[in-house]
């Protein structure tokens, strides 16, 4: 299998060409900018959290395919989750991407994220895949601090 096939397998291409939850939220409970200084990728994450639940999430990203696809998958998986659940998923994904021994397994409901495992072969691009998730962590943190109405 060529490296291209590996990296740009269908799931990633699908999310890249049709990113889910793309756009902005007018009155978000949290809004965070993420940047990857190495390649200049930028994204803005909007969250609407009510009663400890992610009611809405939107992203506008200016970045590579990996960044865009990773953000799109993340938004799909975290929509409707509680803050605790979301934090757990983010944590699990980050561990999968950073773990060197391939010991982190994903539950079935997160199986889309398997597509991003191939990115691990390209250390410089792991950062691209992680940018939306690190931005999400910051957003979830901010949400906790600001009182919800």
């Amino acid at each position: 299998m060529s490296l291209s096939d590996d990296l740009y397998r269908e799931t990633i291409l699908d999310h890249y060409h049709h990113p889910r939850n793309h756009g902005a939220i007018e009155h978000p409970t949290a809004q965070v900018e993420g940047v990857n200084p190495l390649c200049g990728d930028e994204l803005t994450l909007y969250l609407n959290v009510k009663d400890n639940k992610i009611e809405d999430v939107k992203l506008t990203a200016k970045g590579c395919s990996i960044n865009t696809a990773s953000g799109s998958m993340m938004s799909e998986l975290l929509l409707g989750k509680s803050i605790e659940e979301a934090n757990e998923i983010v944590d699990l994904f980050k561990r999968m991407m950073l773990d060197k021994n391939e010991e982190v397994e994903l539950p079935d409901e997160l199986e889309d994220l398997e597509a991003l495992r191939g990115v691990k072969k390209y250390p410089v691009r792991i950062k691209c895949a992680l940018l939306p998730w690190n931005t999400m962590l910051e957003g979830l943190g901010n949400t906790l601090k600001s009182p919800t109405t």
Binding site: S2, L3, L7, L38, C39, G40, D41, I66, N67
Partner: peptide, 26 residues
């Protein structure tokens, strides 16, 4: 509108070394 890193990657997959990024000229 393909991101330079994606171009760099696809070239790299064909064993072609090109540079992708801001070239120290932000």
């Amino acid at each position: 509108a393909i991101h330079a890193h994606d171009i760099g990657q696809i070239c790299a997959d064909a064993a072609i070394a090109v540079r992708a990024g801001h070239h120290c000229c932000q």
